Simulated scan of single mutants.
Amino acid sequence: MEHYIYHVNPDKESKLFFQLWQPSAKPKAVICLVHGIGEHSSRYHEWAELFVEKNIAVVSYDQRGHGLSDGKRGVIPSYEILMDDIDFALKEVKKHFEDTPCFLYGHSMGGGEVLNHLITRKSNYLGVISTSPWIVTQEAPPKIVIPFLRTLSNLFPYISIKTSFDAKRLSHIEQVCIKYNEDELIHHMVSFRLFIDAYDAGYRVLKNPDKVKKPLLLLHGTDDQITDPNASKTFSEGVVNRCTYIQYNKAYHELHNEFCRLDVFVDIINWIETQLAENK
């Protein structure tokens, strides 16, 4: 396996930290991976290695305001900029793997982002993988509060607040939770704009299953305490003939770090193999 890290400018003001994992031989596919809120791409190192063993390359980056990328923690200029960053990441994929079939993969907030990208942007990836997506959060504020938060988002878009978070909700595996708490690159900051934009983006996804025009693999744990598996199920049922939806009984939020992780990995690999076979 070869592993590369580098910074690159998507615009004049910002640098994003990128990582690339690739097999020694020419890969049969490449995954563009978008991480969740508060975390960073290095948390997926072991997960990426599994794909490399199956001759699949992985390209990922730290989102703005996260990890080793520029930006105030938990602050975004706008959700559309996050969509632009995905476009930029896909260009990076093509730069390294010009003729290799690509899949867009997002987890949690990243899972919501890739769903939004799927329904609002054009791209040449073969399909999308979304795990535990932020469509609806389990602890979303009452709808009566949203107009107030929307006002704060307009008045103070770049002010962020620290949220409380129990890492035990990520996984049943204790070591995963311990490592998360000890990770110095993890943060728990969320700006009013980030929350409102992601909140709106989730409901945009929920209302537009008919706009899914490419194959979609949607995965969620039934006991996720962070994002709502029922929202994923409802969305999947509205996608005609293009969505494969799999639930994992008793699993928490981070399916790639859960007791069922190998089952999740096999399901992803099998789905990718199916898409590759159908697009020969």
Rank of each mutant, 00 (worst) to 15 (best):
145 V>S: 11
114 V>I: 11
112 G>C: 11
140 A>M: 11
66 H>Q: 13
81 I>P: 00
128 V>I: 14
116 N>K: 05
56 I>D: 03
93 V>S: 13
71 G>K: 08
85 D>W: 07
67 G>R: 02
51 F>R: 01
73 R>F: 07
61 Y>I: 07
63 Q>F: 03
165 F>I: 06
140 A>R: 15
106 G>H: 09
85 D>F: 09
155 L>Y: 06
73 R>I: 04
85 D>V: 12
89 A>V: 14
130 S>M: 07
149 L>S: 03
106 G>S: 14
122 K>Y: 10
90 L>C: 14
64 R>E: 11
57 A>P: 00
141 P>C: 07
123 S>F: 12
116 N>H: 08
83 M>E: 14
145 V>N: 07
160 S>W: 03
86 I>S: 10
63 Q>H: 09
67 G>E: 03
144 I>N: 01
86 I>A: 14
108 S>R: 00
66 H>G: 05
49 E>K: 15
148 F>S: 05
83 M>H: 10
79 Y>I: 15
152 L>R: 01
123 S>W: 13
137 T>L: 13
111 G>Q: 03
89 A>K: 07
137 T>R: 13
48 A>L: 06
50 L>P: 01
54 K>I: 02
160 S>Q: 08
53 E>D: 12
133 P>D: 10
58 V>Y: 01
65 G>E: 06
85 D>S: 13
51 F>G: 01
107 H>A: 10
156 F>W: 13
84 D>H: 14
148 F>D: 01
102 C>H: 04
164 S>T: 09
107 H>L: 13
48 A>S: 15
148 F>M: 12
107 H>D: 10
83 M>F: 09
132 S>H: 06
51 F>M: 02
122 K>C: 07
138 Q>W: 00
146 I>K: 00
156 F>D: 04
61 Y>E: 06
48 A>K: 03
127 G>M: 11
161 I>Y: 15
92 E>M: 14
112 G>M: 08
57 A>Y: 04
103 F>P: 04
103 F>L: 15
155 L>F: 11
111 G>S: 11
130 S>H: 07
114 V>F: 03
82 L>K: 09
121 R>S: 09
47 W>M: 11
115 L>T: 09
102 C>K: 10
72 K>M: 09
94 K>D: 10
70 D>Y: 02
80 E>T: 15
82 L>E: 13
157 P>S: 08
104 L>D: 06
50 L>A: 05
144 I>G: 05
55 N>I: 02
49 E>P: 01
105 Y>A: 00
130 S>R: 06
98 E>N: 12
100 T>C: 14
75 V>P: 08
145 V>H: 05
164 S>P: 02
95 K>A: 13
139 E>K: 14
132 S>Q: 07
62 D>L: 09
91 K>G: 15
100 T>W: 06
114 V>L: 10
61 Y>M: 12
101 P>H: 09
110 G>A: 05
52 V>F: 00
119 I>A: 08
79 Y>C: 08
152 L>N: 02
56 I>L: 04
